[in-house]
Design a binder for these strands. Structure first.
Lengths: 255, 255
DNA sequence: CGAATGCTTGACGGTACTCAAAGATTGTGG
DNA sequence: CCACAATCTTTGAGTACCGTCAAGCATTCG
């Protein structure tokens, strides 16, 4: 008998085997075969939790492990030596974490929990074995990497070529759509555990200017952020302003 | 008897089989086994050339093919609907191109040749077959994707958190180091087929401001750009200014 | 030699940054 | 339960970095 808990709503636990994984019932993800689940199971070495504000991966230290986020919000970031921080992207349940430093010596990203998070842990050294045993899962991982690169492309366009209000419009729609896709929206509200410094660091803006721009869009009635939750009031207006239209989202593989 | 031409120096031609590939003699790349070469060979459907300034991949059109750049410089970019362009990254021989739109409907990047380029063409539909037949090559492709994502991370930090001179310092060092790695530096000079508009679009700056900043760094004696070639005069100064230190570069797989 | 492309420079303006300080909210300990 | 600290948000003032506009110059090419 499966427990089928939903990590998005109930307190997460992931001690159970992958074929009983609450996230896998989510319609945003592709189904895996029994053999694939088996391979994932032996790739996985356990699960961990980290409270909001703490690190999953310390910057500049190559983690010997890979993760799949199971519940909560996190983000990847890098900092310059004088402390300026850039958030690279935001992580939601199902996101596969850590592939980027497959080869880097130092100079790696950090990953921080924005809410309390739970995640599955995989041994990096077993990655190659996984590719051998189940090429399909290797293909899936590549697919996930390509998808994340695509998101980075969009963020780079944002940071490079959009002005402040366009940036904010783009980010809000992006995050909302992604959360919506995996069923994290309830009554039009999404959990939004980011403060204005996070938004500023993601968009390459200063805190003050972020505040003023955010406030202006909210006064215009385009969105609302309240009590750690986000609501989109005028999706079309925000999409047009940000010149950002989320393409139809396919089902995504889950490792 | 192998021809062993060097695509970096002599006029490129790639009608010959992969085990006779000029690029594979380059010490920047990992050696492949005979079986791998065989698999790559059957994955490949031919080679093509495109003159400077023309497209390898049209923006917004999902290419049914994947490429490996064989000779020359190219770049990936995206444009907003009002024409603002952002260059996402630069492509050198050995770079694998097109994985990013593995799933995107429209909304894809464009790829343009900066010099005359030659590249190998692969059938996207055969990618999965390749993973099955040679998981190692699948692993390599993932590796390449992760590496490119890492470069995007760095560019995002640049666009988001560095000022104009820091951006330029970072970009010049980045491009120089990458070109150097595959032996494209001769007497301290690298082919540099980019105009100031390219640099501006890569860094998220205006043309005018790019010009003034570039000029200032050149007057300071940090670098020289002349006749389509770049020379780094003060690598340390540029690295410090850009807060960007290229990590030791490993050998890279070549598909 | 005129057109096209790219580089350079100056003038001016605005978007976004910095500095500063005052609310608002939350958490903590006495 | 209140006081105080800590964190985050908000607002104002002044500034600067960078963008836009405009025009001149250099080089290439047909």
């Amino acid at each position: 008998m499966k427990r089928e808990d939903n990590p998005l709503k109930s307190p997460p636990r992931c001690a159970h085997p992958c074929d009983d994984c609450g996230l896998r019932n989510n319609s945003a993800f592709l189904k895996s075969t029994a053999e694939e689940l088996d391979a994932i199971e032996s790739f996985r070495v356990g699960s961990r939790s980290v409270p909001a504000g703490r690190s999953l991966i310390e910057e500049h230290i190559r983690s010997p492990q890979l993760f799949t986020l199971y519940s909560g919000w996190a983000f990847r970031y890098k900092t310059l030596t004088d402390g300026r921080r850039q958030i690279l992207n935001f992580l939601l349940p199902g996101d596969f974490i850590g592939l980027q430093d497959e080869f880097a010596e130092g100079n790696t990203h950090g990953v921080e929990a924005a809410t309390d998070v739970t995640f599955c842990v995989f041994e990096r050294d077993k990655l190659w074995t996984l590719f051998q045993r189940q090429p399909k899962l290797g293909y899936d991982i590549t697919w996930l990497a390509a998808r994340e690169e695509k998101m980075l492309d969009d963020h780079l366009v944002t940071a490079g070529r959009r002005n402040a209000s366009e940036r904010i419009a783009m980010l809000l729609m992006h995050l909302y759509r992604r959360a919506e896709r995996i069923g994290m929206v309830e009554d039009g509200w999404v959990e939004f555990p980011f403060n204005q410094q996070h938004i500023a660091d993601a968009l390459g803006l200063s805190l003050v200017h972020t505040n003023k721009t955010l406030r202006r869009l909210q006064r215009l009635g385009l969105h609302k952020i309240d009590d750690g939750k986000l609501r989109i009031l005028e999706p079309q207006a925000l999409e047009t302003l940000g010149d950002y239209f989320e393409r139809p989202l396919r089902r995504v593989p889950l490792i």
